[in-house]
Nucleic acid binder design. Structure first.
Length: 490
RNA sequence: GCGGAGUUAGUUUAGCUCGGUAUGACGUCAGCUUCCCAAGCUGAAGGCCGCGGGUUCGAAUCCCGCACUCCGCACCA
């Protein structure tokens, strides 16, 4: 399916839609999830918990979305998260000062330089607007963090631009109170906020978005220990280590990737393996995925080695997860800024842990799942089918009466009441039976149970499968078990 | 943020050139049919035509501004 097809489904079936849409002053980059979207998201998050948090015995926290200025001084976001920008006074073209200077005159000025240095370089090299030849204005810093004022004095604080800072700040307490031992992962699901210049493409580029982040704290001297590495040694990864979008992608096992030096350590390979196994279970087409090694210029300011997990969708390659080896950047920054001690004991050794991060975009992941799962079934009147994995389906089972009269409605209601607390069931009496099946196909419901006249005689119902459209009869007493078995997480 | 295209019911769409408050389809709801795979019959609801201003006796239609959506550039910590 393509982008427009997913958006149409999202609007028609309550997956997601623009925020504040009834008002003219609604801002771009804000979308909300409807009932189907929330149900899908909750199930996705549960899968993430199972496959990453619980599987690796990580801790999960839930931190504040508003954090103090010191946090972002220490993290480097106040300095590095702000782009130096300048604007053409004639045509209004806005460019990054450092990039424009480098492209036009080959003079390299670090991104973190003072605005006056950019202005000086622009004047010295006679740099003018590449589009219209106009004069550039004085360079300013545009920070992508949303600033908020706390209390009557409006003290400065910020909406977090990534969830992980609470994990770093909380690390000393977590390690002590939860009896941590290296390596240890700490995860968090939550919202992050970035003042994007041009948000676009719905869930793919938001100003307010969900992240599922994991920070693995490890002893930098023991990056090849990875105690559970054997679990993923045969897990296959699509790796793209050379520069360039079209560079070759090699499909190798985690252990081969380490041996061949494609990945820097067993620790990194282990977590990429877990991540690949997780995404396999979301139903995303893994043959359209890659772990792309980022070049020096693409990496975030805090990253030493970075791999993006990307998936091909109709609009191109889409980054779903950033995997960054952040080294000691964060903990040493917070240690210095706060005066708190962030070193911990690893056996007999006192170490400042390094951090390997798995920073997942939930909204983008959900979009990708929808796009890869949505199709038209040409063999059956072009029916629209959302072939979600059963455990991710917003509705697990539709409960239908073949017809409403002769007591079938009442019998159907009774069955619905008994199963609705055990799974996501949807009751429907109205319209032709075939239309109700098709409607369930569109929200991805893997099963439909239909009550007919035979039900009243022998206490059996038909169960219809979304993908094969096959039907079979089962006793009412077995509905619970059959549904539970098929919607269980893998 | 720059340039381009667009915005009409839940979705999709006609009407805009040549101003007179809007068309069809799908969907939804109620009833009939009682039929196990959409598009059968009857009926209904749903739009101040993105928002604001201007021109006009009168604006979906013409003009201006803004917002949003998509595409290209830039941006993506």
């Amino acid at each position: 399916m393509n982008y427009d097809g997913v958006v149409k489904l999202a609007l028609e079936r309550g997956f997601y839609f623009p925020s504040c849409e009834v008002y003219g002053d609604a801002q771009a980059g804000f979308w909300e999830y409807g009932p189907s979207g929330v149900s899908l998201k909750n199930k996705f998050v549960e899968l993430w918990r199972r496959e990453l948090i619980r599987r690796d015995a990580m801790m999960e926290i839930d931190g504040s979305q508003i954090m103090s200025g010191s946090v972002f001084e220490a993290s480097g976001h106040l300095a590095s998260f702000a782009d130096p920008i300048t604007r053409c006074e004639k045509c209004g073209l806005t460019v990054r000062a450092d990039k424009a200077i480098e492209e036009i005159s080959n003079v390299v000025i670090p991104e973190s330089a003072e605005p006056a240095e950019f202005d000086a370089a622009i004047a010295e090299n006679g740099i003018r607007c590449p589009k219209c030849g106009g004069q550039f204005s004085a360079t300013e810093r545009f920070n992508m963090m949303f600033r908020v004022g706390i209390g009557p004095e409006q003290k400065a604080a910020y909406l977090r631009p990534e969830t992980c800072q609470s994990i770093f700040v909380d690390f000393p307490r977590l390690f002590k109170s939860m009896r941590g031992r290296l390596p240890v992962g700490v995860g968090q699901i939550g919202k992050s906020f970035r003042n994007e210049i041009a948000p676009r493409q719905g869930l793919l580029r938001l100003r307010e978005f969900y992240q599922a982040e994991i920070e693995v704290f490890c002893n930098p001297g023991k990056l090849d220990d990875a105690p559970n590495f054997a679990e993923v040694e045969n897990t296959m990864l699509n790796l793209q280590v050379a520069d360039g979008d079209d560079a070759a992608i090699q499909t190798v096992s985690c252990s081969d990737a380490v041996q061949a030096g494609l990945l820097p350590s067993r620790l990194v390979a282990y977590y990429l393996g877990l991540l690949a196994e997780f995404y396999e279970k979301t139903g995303i087409d893994m043959s359209k995925s890659r772990f792309r090694k980022l070049g020096q210029k693409e990496k975030a300011f805090y990253a030493e080695v970075a791999f993006d997990f990307e998936v091909e969708v109709s609009t191109g390659w889409l980054e779903l997860v950033a995997c960054n080896y952040r080294s000691g950047h964060d903990l040493s920054g917070h240690a210095k800024q706060s005066g708190e001690k962030f070193e911990v004991m690893d056996g007999e050794q006192k170490v400042l842990p390094h951090v390997f991060e798995i920073s997942m975009g939930i909204d983008r992941s959900l979009y990708t799942i929808l796009e890869h799962s949505l199709s038209h079934d040409a063999e059956h009147d072009d029916r629209t089918v959302l072939s979600l994995r059963p455990y991710l389906a917003p509705v697990h089972v539709g409960v239908l009466s073949l017809v409403k009269k002769d007591g079938l409605r009442e019998k159907t209601d009774e069955i619905y009441r008994t199963i609705r607390r055990k799974c996501d069931a949807f009751l429907d009496h109205s319209g032709a039976i075939g239309r109700r099946y098709r409607r369930l196909d569109e929200v991805g419901a893997p099963f439909a149970i239909t009550v007919d006249h035979q039900t009243l005689q022998d206490q059996t119902v038909t169960i219809r499968r979304r993908d094969s459209m096959e039907q079979s009869r089962i006793p009412i007493s077995e509905i619970d078990g059959v549904i539970a078995e098929h919607i269980a997480y893998p």
